[in-house]
Design a protein around this nucleic acid. Structure first.
Length: 481
RNA sequence: CGGAGCGUGGCGCAGUCUGGUUAGCGCAUCACACUGGGGGUGUGGGGGUCGGUGGUUCGAAUCCACUCGCUCCGACCA
């Protein structure tokens, strides 16, 4: 950090006599540490771009939208289109990575398709007209019709048909994580229902229904694991197949009061610990899925009140609202037939491949998690997706003892592999606490002159609000345990 | 796409109906001082030309027309 030239109004006789210039702010600390590399960079709140808001912007109606704006995670660019600021971006990346890991575990392979697609592909499938105004249509300089992809079935099918010609290459299992655009008439709820959104979509190509079913099941299980890892209870519900078409589909719904769909389910579903199961994706997953989909669960348009009351004891009936965070479809040869995606079977006959597609709303998940996990003070991040693991508050930046204790603990936590945000600002304690609660880091460590004098720092668990004091050494082992 | 509403410093709002001093308040911001463990206090300062265009008028944030943007309810949607 450079000492900026002093502005004239700071000049005084002392400076004129050549005495050392008083720094306009406390001397920068830890600069040597920052030089050890980007990965080791000291995340100081005084340098971190975190434009928090005390007041709620008028347009934000639901908790997640309000909190994401207030916590400096996102900013609206135009209706339903948002920029991701550093804090929000970190969460988005964490979620994306969990999605990626669980996809990779199933054997689906990651790739990347473009956002802009040629209209001709969509004319082949017939969806260029079917999709209506939700599709953002673009004309390039050569007057060719293009579009900003709302989904990628046509594109992936085109890739597939041009390269795969034999049943021996099946199944072909691919996915990508890419920005999509659907020109919603009425975007709302911030990131939860924007026009531009980040989505993971997977596509499976199989020779027959049995094999397609296995691909579907892999995604089904991977989805439940993915959401569980983010601290969400996602409930699979049989769903309509909508404009994408097909005849086997499930929606994955996260219960939240501000959800868009009304849902009915058996409380037993909430007891299932998905991550407790050891999954081998080469096994037959059908029994596992049958267990997980056994209890009653339905969105309103599939709801059958009589069946609900017959199958679910009164004390276990959950009627609430939910957010759809993912959907899986099997749609057979809908696209392979219209677009000519066929392979030579074992007997030399041409077979239209059986397809499925599977989406997860990655950016929507950020909102869904906030919706499911917050309190009056702000966001409460599940540890797996938190933008930082720990917020380290130096209550008296500039005080030698506090600075040193904060730096030492910061370095030790970093060496232990934790992401730490150090609040080195000169805000008052109350403001610091409020900001930390707002941005919702799972653990807070408070270092202040009062505690240090007694040889302790304070640790606060954001979720429970529980606070306790430990020596710095004990705090380190507690946090790194 | 049907219905409703709103655009005034970075954010939240008042002022508009009933045109008329220099457009106001809270928060944020900057400086200084006091303060210092849950968004503290005081003093002083900076920042807007009222979404845009055109019109009416001696005079427009205020009235009229057009236009752009945003929001809400409904239908629709990962």
């Amino acid at each position: 950090m450079q000492i900026s030239p002093r502005s004239p109004r700071h000049d005084d006789a002392g400076a004129a006599l050549g005495e050392p210039l008083p720094s306009p702010r406390p001397a920068p600390k830890f600069t040597g540490f920052r030089a050890t590399g980007a990965d080791e960079e000291l995340m100081r709140l005084s340098r971190f771009f975190l434009p928090t808001l005390k007041e709620v912007p008028a347009e934000a109606k639901i908790a997640s939208h309000q909190l994401m704006l207030r916590a400096g995670m996102i900013r609206q660019s135009s209706a339903g289109i948002y920029s991701w600021l550093p804090l929000g971006f970190r969460v988005l990346k964490k979620i994306e990575q969990i999605v990626r890991e669980e996809q990779d575990a199933t054997g689906f392979q990651e790739m990347l398709m473009p956002t802009i697609q040629p209209a001709d592909l969509w004319r082949e499938s017939g969806r260029y007209d079917d999709y209506g105004k939700e599709m953002l249509r673009i004309t390039d300089r050569h007057n060719r019709d293009m579009l900003y992809g709302p989904t990628n079935e046509e594109l992936i099918t085109d890739i597939f048909r041009r390269s795969v010609h034999s049943y021996k290459d099946l199944p072909t299992l691919l996915y990508h994580i890419q920005w999509k655009f659907r020109d919603e008439v009425r975007p709302r709820f911030g990131i939860m229902r924007g026009r531009e959104f980040l989505m993971k979509d997977s596509y499976s190509f199989d020779l027959d229904f049995e094999s397609a079913r296995r691909s579907y099941n892999k995604m089904f299980v991977a989805y439940l694991r993915t959401f569980a890892r983010m601290g969400l209870k996602a409930i699979p519900m049989r769903a309509d197949t909508g404009p994408i078409g097909g005849d086997l589909s499930h929606e994955f719904i996260v219960l939240a009061d501000t959800g868009e769909s009304e849902v009915f389910c058996d409380a037993a579903l909430l007891e299932i610990d998905v991550l407790a199961e050891t999954v081998d994706y080469e096994d037959d997953l059908e029994p596992l899925i049958e267990r997980w989909t056994g209890p009653y669960a339905a969105v309103d348009d599939k709801h059958d009140p009589a069946d609900f009351e017959a199958r679910v004891p009164e004390d276990r009936r959950i009627k609430g609202r939910g957010i759809e965070v993912g959907q899986v479809f099997y749609f057979g040869s809908k696209y392979s037939k219209s677009m000519g995606a066929s392979v030579a079977g074992a007997n030399g006959e041409e077979v239209d491949v059986e397809m499925g597609s599977y989406g997860i709303g990655v950016s929507r998940l950020v909102g869904a998690i906030v919706e499911a996990s917050h309190d009056d003070g702000g966001i409460i991040w599940p540890a797996s997706v938190a933008p930082f693991d720990i917020g380290l508050l130096n209550l008296k930046a500039g005080d030698a003892a506090c600075d040193k204790a904060a730096q030492d603990l910061y370095e030790s936590l970093r060496i232990a592999g934790l992401d730490v945000l150090l609040d080195d600002t000169s805000e008052r304690a109350g403001a610091k606490f409020a900001t930390m609660d707002l941005i919702g880091l799972p653990k807070q460590v408070v270092i202040g002159p009062r505690g240090l004098k007694a040889g302790v720092v304070e640790i606060k668990d954001r979720a429970t609000g529980k606070r306790f004091e430990l020596s710095p050494e004990a705090a380190l082992s507690y946090l790194t345990a």
